[in-house]
Design a protein around this nucleic acid. Structure first.
Length: 805
RNA sequence: GCCAAAGUGGCGGAACUGGUAGACGCGCUGGACUCAAAAUCCAGUGGGUGCAAACUCGUGUGGGUUCGAGUCCCACCUUUGGUACCA
C-alpha cells in the first residue's frame, strides 16, 4: 500500500481537533514549558514557506517537550491592527475588520494544514475588544505613572499615509517608496528612556543571541561623560556642552551648537546675523535624512561670538552646524579636531586650529587620531596636569577638576529617545483619554473604548485620524464638563507588547492575567521569530513588561528567557522572496503537492535554523522518499496489511545504532539543530532497510523520534502497528550510555600527519597494542621502509601517528 | 567608515574539547525491474595522473604554531546582517 499523505494528514488533524489533543491542561502536576512564536500580521498575500520555518521549529520543540513530560503552552494569535487593511479600506471601502477576518481565516487554515499543535482555544486577536481593553488599560497605567505624556515634537510625517512614523519605521517606509518629512505635531509619547538603565542591565539575565543583545545595547546607546559650562565673552549666560572626552579639553579649539539651539541666533554678532539667520532657515528645510544621512561635506556658520576654554583660558569661536543634533546631549559640543573625526573634518573645512593633546602615532594635521589607547600630552595649566596619563585617569582627573571649579558635572546620556506613540489612523486601539475645554485631561472610565463605525477611512483634512470626523463619538459631556475624545490611535507595536501574557489567561474579564497562572507560566521559555524584530518589538515589549513588573502584574523582570532568530528562507534564485521578484513559494502550493510532513521536514533539513538559506523545490523530493522508506518499514509488501513486526532481539550493531540515534536526535532536538537530527534518522532508517530489520522496538523508537517532525505519518503507522492511543503522548525513549559507544573501533594510522592506513581494534585498547597493530598495517610498513621513526603519537580509540625522517 | 557573523564538492550542508574532510540529502553517471516509461532498488560520484594497485593536490588567499589545522594565531580578500555625524 502506498502512502497517501493527503488522506492521512486530514484524518489526524481531525483526530487532534476532536480529541483536543493539544489543549493545555491548567495546573498540571508537571514542569511547564512555554514555547512561543512571534504572532503574525494576517496579510492578504498569505503565508509562504519562509513564514513556516519558525512555526515548524517551535512546533517540533512543543511536541518534543510534551513527549519529555512537560506541560507545554504553545499558542497562536493575530497581530491584526495595522496599515495594509486600512489602506485597502481607503481604496475599496471594505471595513478593515472584514479584510482582517478573511485573512485570519486563510492563515489559520494553512497553519492547521501544517499540523501545528497549537492550543487553538487560546487564540487571541489584538483587534478583539476583549483584548484591546487591556492594551488600553496598560496605556492608562502608563499615563498615571507619568510614563505617557503629550508633547509638541518634531515627528516623522508621512504625507501619503497621513501619519506619524516612529524613528525606527522611517527607513522601512522610505524603502517602500513613501516620503517622510520632519514636522512639529502634538503627540503622545512614552517615556521609555526612564527604563534605559534597566533595559541594558537586565540583558545580562536572558539567554539571547549575543548579537541581538549587542544591537539593543547600541540602540539604547549609553555613554558616560561630562557636561561642561563654557563662559561666553560678551554674554552673561553660559553654554553647556556634553562630552565623553573631557580628557581632551586642552585640545578644544572651537565650539559648535545645533541650528535649533536656543542661543543660536542670540550669539550672532551684528556682522554675522544675516548669515546665521540664513543658515538656520536652510537647516529647517532639510529633512532628518538629508541632515544625518550619508557622508556629506560639513557645513556651518560662525556666530561671531567667543567662549572661554576653562582649562586654557583661550577664546574659542562658537560655530553653528547641522551635524550637531539638538536632540542629543545639550545640542552643543566642544570640538577637539585632533581627536575626533567629525571635528577634524569641520576644522579642515573652515581652517580652524588643530592641537594634539593625545600622543598620536602620526601628524594630526594629516589625519585624525581618535583612539583611547594613548596618553595625554600638552594638557596642563597651573592647577592641573593630565600629561602622561592614560584615558581613564585623565578623564577622572579632569572631571574632578571641573567639578571642583563648579564648571562641570558628570552625566550619563542615552541615544534612546522617548517613543512617539500616537498614529493618525483609524485601525488601531483608540487612546482612552478625554480632553476638556479647560485643557485638562481625564482618562476614560469605561474600557474598552470602542472604535466607532465610520463612512470613510481617509484621514481628516487637518491631518487628524478619521475619528475626528465622527462627531457623535468625538464629543460628549459628563460631570466634569464637555470634552473631545483623543483622536489618535496606538501604533501597531502596542498589541504585540504584551500578547504573550494574554495567552496564559485569554478569557479573563476581571484582570489582565490571573496572578497564579502568571506565576506558573512565566516567563516564555523559548521565543522564536525573525531577526527583523531584534530592536523594535523586543525592546518595546521588554519596556512594557518592566512597567507591568513595577505595577505588580507580573513577577519576572524579563518576558523572554530564551530567544531564537530563525534565518530567512530565500527564493530559488537566492534572492529575498518578494512579490516583485516573483520568487515567492506559497505555503499552500507546496502543502498540496508534498504534504505537511514533507514540508516540515524539508524546511528543517535545509540547514541550520539560524542561517539564511535558499529554497530548492527539488530537494523536497528526497524528503518524500525518506518518508516513503519509513512507510515501507511497516508496509513492506504489496498487501494492504501492515507487516507484522518481530520481537527477535536486534543485532548488536543495530541496537547500538538505535541508542546512538536516540541520543543524537534527543540532543539535537533540544538544541534546535533539526537538520542533523533528521540526517541521523535517515541513517538509521537506511540501516534498518539494509539489514531487512522489522524489529518492533527499533521501529517504534524511530516513530517516536520522528513524531515531532512528521506527526501525521507517524500517527498513522503507530496506529497500524497496533496502538490505540496517539503517538503524541508516547514518552520519548531513553538511551543506555553503555550502548552509545562502539565496541570495535576503526583506528587511523598516520605518517607525518597523513593518513596511510587503518585497522580495527576493540574500544579502550592499551597504547602498546595499538602501536603493535599499527606497525602491522601493510601500507604503513611500505611507507616506513628505509625511514626512521622519531616519535610515536598514540591517541587511544582514535589514531596512531608516526613522525618519521 | 565602524560592529558582528560567515567563506568546505555541481548544489543545500556534516565534521564533538585540534585527530580518517565531504555525514545526510539534491543533482549527475551506470546497472536491475519494464515492451517502454514513471516509481523503486543496487553501485558510483571533490580535482588531477594512471589499465590498475596506487599516487598526488585539496576546506577564500598568504604566513605561522603543532607529530597533526576546516578547527588555534597574524595579515589580507570576499559575502551577509546590523549601524550610521549620538560628541
Amino acid at each position: 500500500m502506498k502512502y497517501d499523505f493527503s488522506k492521512t494528514e486530514k484524518k489526524w488533524q481531525a483526530y487532534w481537533q476532536q480529541h483536543e489533543s493539544f489543549k493545555t491542561a491548567e495546573n498540571a502536576d508537571k514542569p511547564k514549558y512555554y514555547v512561543l512564536d512571534m504572532f503574525p500580521y494576517p496579510s492578504g498575500s498569505g503565508l509562504h514557506v519562509g513564514h513556516l520555518e519558525g512555526y515548524t521549529a517551535s512546533d517540533i520543540t512543543a511536541r518534543y517537550k510534551r513527549s519529555c513530560g512537560f506541560n507545554v503552552l504553545h499558542p497562536m494569535g493575530w497581530d491584526a491592527f495595522g496599515l495594509p487593511a486600512e489602506q485597502f479600506a481607503i481604496k475599496t471601502g471594505t471595513h478593515p475588520r472584514i479584510t482582517t477576518e478573511q485573512n485570519i481565516k486563510s492563515f489559520k487554515e494553512t497553519l492547521q494544514a501544517m499540523g501545528f499543535s497549537y492550543d487553538w482555544t487560546r487564540e487571541i486577536n489584538t483587534t478583539d475588544p476583549g483584548y484591546f481593553k487591556w492594551t488600553q488599560w496598560i496605556f492608562l497605567r502608563l499615563y498615571e505613572m507619568g510614563l505617557a505624556y503629550m508633547s509638541e515634537v518634531d515627528v516623522n510625517w508621512c504625507e501619503e499615509l497621513k501619519t506619524v512614523l516612529a524613528n525606527e519605521e522611517v527607513e522601512e517606509k522610505i524603502a517602500d517608496g513613501y516620503t517622510v518629512i520632519r514636522r512639529p505635531l502634538r503627540q503622545w509619547v512614552l517615556k521609555i528612556t526612564a527604563y534605559a538603565e534597566r533595559l541594558i542591565a537586565d540583558l545580562d539575565e536572558v539567554n539571547w543571541p549575543e548579537n541581538v543583545k549587542q544591537m539593543q545595547r547600541n540602540w539604547i546607546g549609553r555613554s558616560e561623560g561630562v557636561e561642561i559650562d563654557f563662559e561666553l565673552r560678551c554674554h552673561k549666560t553660559r553654554l553647556k556642552v556634553y562630552t565623553t572626552r573631557p580628557d581632551t579639553l586642552f585640545g578644544a579649539t572651537y565650539l559648535v551648537i545645533s541650528p535649533e539651539h536656543q542661543l543660536a541666533e542670540k550669539l550672532a554678532t551684528a556682522p554675522q546675523l544675516l548669515a546665521v539667520k540664513e543658515y538656520i532657515r536652510q537647516a529647517k528645510l532639510k529633512t532628518e535624512l538629508e541632515r544625518t544621512g550619508l557622508q556629506k561635506e560639513k557645513t556651518g556658520v560662525f556666530t561671531g561670538s567667543y567662549a572661554i576654554n576653562p582649562a586654557t583660558g583661550e577664546p574659542l569661536p562658537v560655530w553653528i552646524s547641522d551635524f550637531v543634533l539638538i536632540s542629543y546631549g545639550t545640542g552643543a559640543i566642544m570640538s577637539v579636531p585632533a581627536h575626533d573625526q567629525r571635528d577634524w573634518e569641520f576644522a579642515k573645512q573652515y581652517n580652524l586650529p588643530i592641537i594634539e593633546v593625545i600622543k598620536s602615532p602620526h601628524d594630526v594635521e594629516e589625519k585624525v587620531f581618535d583612539e583611547k589607547n594613548s596618553i595625554s600630552v600638552n594638557s596642563s595649566n597651573s592647577e592641573l596636569s593630565l600629561d602622561g596619563l592614560p584615558f581613564p585617569e585623565a578623564f577622572e582627573r579632569m572631571a574632578k577638576w571641573l567639578e571642583s571649579k563648579n564648571v562641570g558635572s558628570r552625566k550619563v546620556n542615552y541615544k534612546l529617545r522617548d517613543w512617539i506613540f500616537s498614529r493618525q489612523r483609524y485601525w488601531g486601539e483608540p487612546i482612552p483619554i478625554k480632553h476638556y475645554e479647560d485643557g485638562t485631561l481625564r482618562t476614560e472610565t469605561m474600557l474598552p473604548l470602542m472604535l466607532p463605525e465610520v463612512e470613510a477611512y481617509h484621514p481628516s483634512s487637518t491631518g487628524e485620524s478619521p475619528l475626528a470626523n465622527i462627531a457623535e463619538w468625538l464629543l460628549g459631556n459628563d460631570e466634569h464638563g464637555t470634552f473631545r475624545r483623543e483622536t489618535n490611535t496606538m501604533p501597531q507595536w502596542a498589541g504585540s507588547c504584551w500578547y504573550y501574557l494574554r495567552f496564559i489567561d485569554p478569557e479573563n474579564r476581571e484582570k489582565l492575567i490571573d496572578p497564579a497562572k502568571e506565576e506558573y507560566w512565566m516567563n516564555v521559555d523559548l521565543y522564536i521569530g525573525g531577526a527583523e524584530h531584534a530592536v523594535l518589538h523586543l525592546l518595546y515589549a521588554r519596556f512594557w513588561h518592566k512597567v507591568l513588573f513595577d505595577l505588580g502584574v507580573v513577577t519576572t523582570r524579563e518576558p523572554f528567557k530564551k530567544l531564537f532568530n530563525q534565518g530567512m528562507i530565500l527564493g530559488e534564485d537566492n534572492e529575498k522572496m518578494s512579490k516583485s521578484r516573483g520568487n515567492v513559494i506559497p505555503a499552500d502550493h507546496v502543502l498540496e503537492r508534498y504534504g505537511a510532513d514533507a514540508v516540515r521536514l524539508y524546511e528543517m533539513f535545509l540547514g541550520p535554523l539560524e542561517q539564511v538559506k535558499p529554497w530548492n523545490t527539488n530537494g523536497i523530493e528526497g524528503i518524500s522518499r525518506f518518508l516513503a522508506k519509513v512507510w515501507r518499514l511497516v508496509y513492506s509488501g504489496d498487501e494492504d496489511a501492515a507487516t507484522s513486526l518481530t520481537c527477535e532481539s536486534l543485532s548488536d550493531e543495530l541496537l547500538r545504532k538505535m541508542h546512538k540515534t536516540i541520543k543524537k536526535v534527543g540532543e539535537d532536538t533540544e538544541n534546535l539543530k533539526f537538520n542533523t537530527a533528521i540526517s541521523e534518522m535517515m541513517v538509521f532508517v537506511n540501516e534498518l532497510h539494509k539489514a531487512g530489520c522489522r524489529n518492533r522496538e527499533a521501529v517504534e523508537t524511530l516513530l517516536i523520534l520522528l513524531a515531532p517532525y512528521a506527526p501525521h505519518i507517524t500517527e498513522e503507522l503507530w496506529e497500524a502497528i497496533g496502538h490505540s492511543s496517539s503517538i503524541s503522548i508516547a514518552p520519548f525513549p531513553l538511551f543506555l550510555p553503555e550502548l552509545v559507544e562502539d565496541s570495535i573501533l576503526t583506528i587511523a594510522v598516520q605518517i607525518n600527519g597523513k593518513l596511510r592506513g587503518t585497522f580495527t581494534a576493540p574500544a579502550k585498547s592499551p597504547k602498546e597494542l595499538l602501536l603493535e597493530e599499527a606497525l602491522k598495517v601493510e601500507s604503513v610498513i611500505k611507507f616506513l621502509e628505509g625511514k626512521s621513526i622519531i616519535r610515536e603519537i598514540i591517541v587511544p580509540d582514535k589514531l596512531v601517528n608516526f613522525a618519521v625522517k
